[in-house]
Simulated scan of single mutants.
Amino acid sequence: MSTSPPDPGRLSINTATVRALWDLGQILDGCARHGIRGVSPWRDQVREMGLKAAAARIHGHGFAVTGYCRGGMFPGATPAERLAARDDNRRAVDEALELGARCLVLVVGGLPRGSKDVAGARGQVRDGIGELLDFARPREMPLAIEPLHPMYAADRACVNTIGHANDLCDELGDAGLGIALDVYHVWWDPHLEREIARAGAKRLLAFHVCDWLVPTRDLLLDRGMMGDGVIDVPAIRAAVEAQGYGGFHEVEIFSAEDWWKRPPDEVLQTCIERHQTSC
């Protein structure tokens, strides 16, 4: 599989990468200034700016919205909590449509408050995705399940492998449902290449890149820039593209003690450079 440098035009920035020092308007203007064609905004940033204003700025710059972060968090300890999650996810679908997003990324949620029943939580996730699909499919907004590293199983996502995400796609149907593959969460999986092939181009809706640092100082907020850690990002990209994935490579970095403290223009320029040398 080829690991030649990627097309520079396929770089996307997840807005979390420079969110500490810039608001959404500054991020969008900065990406445009640096010639970056893709963005993936977060709902809280869009809410702060205003949905229609955010959509107008995004469309005005001609960005591809490579994903919208995020829906999910389906499990709840009570029926009222699950109903609130359902309603919030429907709003997320409508927001993603307004922004012209290619998919709504689902971080599915972990154990309900007070629970130790991971199987039950996974059942709630399956049912929640199925119910949301009934809402999203007629509106033609694809849903992208993002498997998260097992360290997040209790609180953020009890779908932890691409194999599990594939199983959900098998059970619920491929129409309007796929996977957001983030190298940070799946690089360690011994079945990764096999499950990427199982997903195929149809299910691979988004591809997120960063790096895993050794040591990692904080499991949530110490992601590395591509090339600074142990993930073979080019090999994973090659495996994804061998299946026919032709979408963007979305840089998503949470870095409270490093990249979030640097000038955002420097961060964006580094993303551009590392996209060519380390992806």
Results as ranks from 00 to 15, higher is better:
E266W: 06
G67S: 15
V183Y: 03
R194C: 03
G123Y: 00
L133V: 06
P75K: 10
R86W: 13
L192Q: 09
G72W: 04
E250H: 00
L97F: 01
G246C: 11
G247T: 06
D87I: 11
L213Q: 12
A239H: 12
F248M: 15
C271L: 11
C279Q: 04
A242K: 05
G50V: 06
L104I: 09
D189I: 10
G120L: 10
V46N: 07
G229T: 07
A144G: 12
A85M: 04
H59V: 00
A55T: 07
P150W: 06
A55K: 03
V18S: 11
G30R: 04
I36V: 15
R37T: 13
A180L: 12
R237A: 15
A84L: 10
G50R: 05
V93N: 10
H59F: 03
D189P: 08
G110N: 06
T270H: 02
N166K: 04
I162V: 15
G67M: 08
G163Q: 05
A53W: 00
L21W: 00
T3P: 00
G173W: 10
H275W: 00
S278M: 01
F74C: 02
A56Q: 14
G178N: 06
D134K: 07
C158N: 14
H59S: 12
D211Y: 11
V267W: 02
D87W: 05
A77K: 09
L97W: 00
E171G: 00
S115H: 03
E48W: 03
R37C: 08
P264H: 10
L143Y: 00
I236E: 05
T277Q: 01
L143T: 01
G71Y: 00
L24K: 06
A136Y: 07
E193G: 08
H185Q: 09
W259N: 00
Q45N: 08
A119E: 11
E257S: 12
Q124E: 14
D228F: 04
D211G: 07
P8W: 07
H185L: 04
E146A: 13
D167K: 06
A55I: 08
D189G: 10
E48P: 00
A96M: 01
S4Y: 11
S2R: 11
S40L: 03
P6S: 14
A64N: 10
G123F: 01
R102E: 14
E81L: 05
G71Q: 02
P234D: 09
L220Q: 15
A121D: 08
P263N: 05
L104T: 04
R57T: 12
L205H: 11
E98T: 06
A101D: 07
S115C: 02
A239N: 03
A180Q: 01
L268E: 02
A153L: 04
I13Q: 02
L111Q: 06
V93I: 15
I272L: 13
D228R: 09
A256L: 04
G227L: 13
C69H: 14
